[in-house]
Nucleic acid binder design. Structure first.
Lengths: 298, 298
DNA sequence: GTCGCCCATAGGTTGTGACTATGACTCTGA
DNA sequence: TCAGAGTCATAGTCACAACCTATGGGCGAC
């Protein structure tokens, strides 16, 4: 049984004649005869009654017809969906990212994507650490990743920009009124709001402080970036967070650093040549570059 | 796009490997490679990512997979249904008949059919007259007919039996206490309960009376056999009806006739060689022959 | 470094599907 | 009654599609 044979069946049933159905299908009448005979032989019963003037469905054929229509309809649905998928307009994309980016960076491009390609579903797969993100892409748990640019990557990589880290303090902090960028070393003796060990930002913050010549002490740890920012804003101590996670009306004070702490962000995937769905997504990222609170060049 | 290619796609997705899927499908690995390549070319995008160790669905392939499964599932459903249809176990049969038979004769075989083939639906198409029944079969409005045996018929015909007509009178009728068959001429001067012109039994009753040498007068006409019987039972005048329409606890008195009035009943269809569905139905009729209140031999 | 696993390609063979031509049949109209 | 138009089925032929075997290339494992 083939899709083609079922289409033939429908055409004949619709027109009530082999000859006319053959015209519709742009094939010869004998070809249609043969194919229907094959179908009838495979199914084990006649589907049409041959009359002197055209043909008519048998009881068996009439019973089978709705099922045949269902198969053809399903096939057409599948083809429609895939043609939209192959134009990057539909389907499902599993986007891997790290926790902080799904708050600070992704909302804008995802909103654009929703608007421009309403039939394209996105499943966010959030990882705590850049390593597990890369692993997740490699293992096929997600189709594309947005995160810190991997050191060396076998597939497609494309830099999106650099996110800048700021130190968040409470409005009544002694350094809150500083004009311009501050020196990170001023916070060396403070009690920091730090990230929990498993959070990917934790080693990053420690490395930044180490470059400034100290190791941050902390009494408070959280795995959530936005929690760290809010805790710092309420006086729990300084916290280093990406500037893009701070909302416009944020209650704390964000201090830029004299020695900027930056992280290169990229979109990357297993495939060296991304397919249409990935391209659509990557395009959405590109066109939102200037609205993602990233530094475009270091 | 063919059903076969979709099956290939599912097998590969399921096994995660061309080689293993080819083993499952009992084809060679290159054949599978080629077919999938053709499918991908037709659809316009890669469905699998080729990895050193097997393959993995792309985002496009993963989006398409559920649709492909739906198509295959619909095809399997269709095949299952048709295999049950070709064994006469399912589907829809349109049974044409005349009004009186759907009351008196068909209930028993239809009940048997329901019991033995629960998935087989029957649509009763009732005609007022044997001529329109024959026309209905010829025109394809029903698949098979149960009714008075046609004079000459081009398709399959099979006699079911002879229904015998009785004269129904009220219990207080002068002739109600007659022992044995009565002479139809005794009712020549009565006011009959007759059938309306369009009812198929009307000419039949008139012909029977004509054979007995009189033309029945009537003050009351109905198109329904059971109404005629009840009216007669309540004293409206004699009525000639098939004996099989009288229920066991019927209130009137049914008188058999010395010159029996009988009508040959048959099942017939357009097709000279009935298909499985018709055969199932005809078989149900045959096996109910002795329970349909028919005379088996004239 | 060699071996094994996996997918892709090439070349050859088989089989299927389509076409043209024709036949059998029925209904229609002269 | 017979010719013609219309229907579907069959036969013969051809092209292409699908498959198989053999082989190549890439990658990881031992």
């Amino acid at each position: 049984m083939t899709l083609r044979q079922l289409e033939f069946l429908l055409a004949i049933a619709h027109r009530g004649s082999f000859t006319r159905a053959a015209l519709d299908l742009h094939i010869s009448q004998p070809a249609l005869s043969t194919q229907l005979r094959l179908l009838e032989e495979e199914l084990g019963c006649r589907l049409f009654e041959r009359l002197p003037r055209g043909v008519q469905l048998t009881a068996e054929g009439r019973s089978f017809l709705p099922e045949a229509e269902a198969v053809i309809a399903a096939a057409e649905r599948a083809q429609r969906l895939l043609s939209s998928v192959s134009e990057g307009d539909g389907g499902l994309l599993r986007v891997g990212t790290v926790l902080s980016l799904s708050i600070g960076v992704l909302p804008v491009p995802l909103a654009n994507l929703r608007r421009q390609h309403p039939d394209l579903s996105v499943e966010l797969v959030e990882y705590e650490h850049r390593d597990s993100l890369e692993q997740g892409v490699s293992d096929g748990h997600c189709d594309v990743a947005v995160g810190p640019r991997p050191a060396d990557w076998y597939g497609h990589v494309e830099t999106l920009g650099w996110e800048e880290f700021v130190v968040v303090v409470a409005p009544d902090d002694p350094l809150a009124k500083s004009e311009g960028p501050v020196d990170l070393r001023l916070f060396a003796d403070r009690n920091w709001v730090l990230f929990s060990q498993r959070q990917g930002l934790s080693p990053f913050v420690h490395a930044a402080c180490a470059r400034a010549g100290f190791a941050p002490r902390g009494r408070l740890r959280t795995s959530q970036v936005s929690a760290a920012a809010r805790l710092a804003a309420s006086g729990a101590g300084p916290a280093m967070v990406p500037s893009n996670v701070l909302e416009p009306g944020f209650a704390g004070v964000a201090l830029r650093l004299q020695e900027p702490v930056r992280r290169e962000l990229a979109v990357f995937s297993r495939d060296a040549a991304p397919g249409p769905l990935l391209l659509t997504f990557i395009e959405a990222l590109r066109s939102a570059k200037n609205h993602m609170l990233l530094v475009v060049a270091p």
